[in-house]
Design a protein around this nucleic acid. Structure first.
Lengths: 160, 160
DNA sequence: AGACTGTATGTTATAACATAACGAAAGACG
DNA sequence: CGTCTTTCGTTATGTTATAACATACAGTCT
């Protein structure tokens, strides 16, 4: 029951969920942040779906489970998770995805399949903008790097 | 009467607006696309403001000029301009900015100053994701590359 | 001219995403 | 126990975006 590279390949889902939760607990403890039930459940929902989900999609799951029904409940939990580096926001989709490598500081990059909606996390080599930034004196604080296209599966299949 | 900040440097604003309009006309002609009054005006508004504007900001200008008052009017014109490569959408801001180098095919990158809101367009060297894409077989169609931070001006000034 | 076609607009309504603001509950700590 | 801080519940509203349908207008064919 092995294999784990996240992204567009197979992996042991149950295992990755479990270990992500453990990482999350560690990280929150280290940061003196509380991993409350709502926050935990939101993180689990994202991990389980393993795709990017809109805040309202997350919210409707929470609602079904009696954990909250109003937008701020979902947005607050998502903000918390983003702040802790456990979840990333995908600007292109106005959606959120569980981090593939929690704990590591990173400026993540994403590949978004427009066929199946899968979002794979990658690392940016060195900032592609660092050169321009240097040249102009711009001081980069955060980057958004997202590519949209077709994953290997979808290149042959469903969406042309 | 020159000078207004483009990117993060000075330039002759009146001139850059005029020449951008001419480029736009050429491009539309070449593409058998109509550069209608609304589309032209939206493009001018973006050029004149020389910053990223939300669709509803553009719309209120159109409305004031009697060119349209309903959201689809603005969104349609903006989509058209984006399709023609004359305008770029800034995902991070849910906003639109006139292209700095119309005519050139490009996967542009942006530096967004959180102090003054200026958006500077840069070129990405080679796709920062191309390596990851190759490795996984992902086929990139479009990229979003945006950095947020502080421009030289704002590093010493207003926003800490 | 009259009918037909395609592109662009106008308009209504609503979907989808996001946050401000306020008060109550719960735990931490002197 | 009182107070402080953090989290949560809720109301209300703000912001961004599009679906769907109707109209206008220019060109073309007969």
């Amino acid at each position: 029951m092995p294999s784990a590279p996240l992204g567009f390949s197979q992996h042991d889902h149950a295992h990755c969920v479990k270990s992500a939760i453990i990482s999350a607990e560690d990280i929150c403890t280290k940061n003196n942040a509380q991993f409350t039930p709502v926050r935990r459940r939101v993180f689990e929902i994202l991990l389980e779906s393993h795709t990017a989900m809109g805040a309202y999609d997350v919210l409707s799951r929470l609602d079904a489970e009696g954990l909250g029904s109003k937008p701020p409940v979902a947005y607050r939990a998502l903000s918390f998770l983003v702040d802790q580096g456990l979840v990333h926001r995908i600007e292109r989709l106005n959606a959120f995805v569980a981090c593939a490598t929690p704990g590591a500081h990173h400026d993540p990059a994403f590949m978004i399949c427009r066929g199946c909606g899968t979002v794979a996390e990658a690392q940016t080599g060195s900032g592609p903008l660092s050169q321009s930034a240097l040249a102009t004196g711009f001081e980069i604080e955060q980057t958004v790097i997202e590519a949209e296209g077709l994953c290997p599966e979808c290149q042959s299949g469903p969406t042309s």
